[in-house]
Simulated scan of single mutants.
Amino acid sequence: MTFASILLLGFVLGMRHATDADHVVAVTTIVSRERSLRNAAFIGALWGLGHSITLFLVGGALVLFRLTIPPHVGLGMEMVVAIMLIVLGAMNVTNAMRRIEEAAGGRKSSPDHAHGHEHAHEHRILKGASLMQLGRALVVGIVHGLAGSAALALLVLTTIRKAGSALAYLVIFGVGTIFGMMFLTMAMAVPMAIAANRFAQVGRVERAMARATGLLSILFGGYLAYRIGVVDGLFSMHPQWSPE
């Protein structure tokens, strides 16, 4: 296999890597209220950028210095991802409930005021993604890169011997991940875009999706935490861990 074909394979695998279950769940909590395909793509790109930065720094260090990660450390990095999913889900559910209370209070006080508030909220979303969304996407991508860096470095070490070529592979893999997540987040934004065009009460759809994705993230994060902590034995004397 030529080096060019290896890089092409890295790009394809990077795009596929973006669709891993924990990645999809995490990003869904961020774009669950996004109506703009452009904004969704930008959020996905930032997630992929953060993810790629961590993969290159951590994975690159492992490749260059031929380091190995102890099982407790590897499982600990994966546990951080599980905790992050739970936190993201809780934030989505809490924010959705707060918006429900605000909407109910606005309807009781003044229907015209509530409608104006909803219109202003819609205008803000259509104008651009909030800084909180963008910052959250970048941070979540960086954290997610911790869990995947060991597996990727191990794959590179078993296939590419030259350090320069291995680093190039990491970069191309990261680029593929960025593009894969961009397409994924755009696809996730399509239902909200359709709802915005077809339904007058799109705010209710937003809140329902935020609660649903939040609960999904909490449940999936809890499952990962149980598997890592109990099944794989993070808190035991003899953990069982292999980079995946």
Rank of each mutant, 00 (worst) to 15 (best):
L155N: 13
L155S: 15
L155V: 15
L155M: 14
V156G: 01
V156P: 00
V156F: 00
V156Y: 02
L157M: 15
L157V: 07
T158L: 14
T158D: 09
T159R: 15
T159I: 10
T159D: 07
T159Q: 15
T159C: 09
T159W: 06
I160M: 03
I160N: 00
I160T: 02
R161W: 04
R161Y: 03
R161M: 01
R161S: 09
K162E: 12
A163S: 05
A163P: 06
A163F: 02
G164S: 08
G164F: 00
G164N: 01
G164W: 02
S165M: 05
S165C: 01
S165A: 08
A166N: 02
A166W: 07
A166F: 08
A166S: 11
A166C: 03
A168Y: 00
A168Q: 06
A168S: 09
A168P: 00
Y169C: 10
Y169A: 03
Y169H: 06
L170S: 06
L170I: 10
L170T: 05
L170W: 01
V171I: 15
V171Y: 11
V171D: 05
I172T: 13
I172F: 04
I172V: 15
I172D: 04
F173N: 07
F173G: 12
F173L: 05
F173T: 08
G174M: 11
G174A: 13
G174V: 14
G174T: 14
V175C: 13
V175G: 09
V175S: 04
G176Q: 11
G176N: 11
G176W: 08
T177Q: 06
T177I: 11
T177E: 02
T177H: 13
T177W: 07
T177Y: 02
I178T: 13
I178N: 10
I178Q: 08
I178L: 14
F179D: 04
F179Q: 04
F179I: 11
F179V: 12
G180A: 09
G180D: 13
G180R: 07
G180V: 05
G180Q: 10
M181T: 06
M181K: 12
M181L: 08
M181G: 06
M181H: 09
M182D: 03
M182I: 11
M182V: 09
M182P: 01
F183Y: 05
F183M: 15
F183H: 03
F183V: 15
F183I: 15
L184A: 12
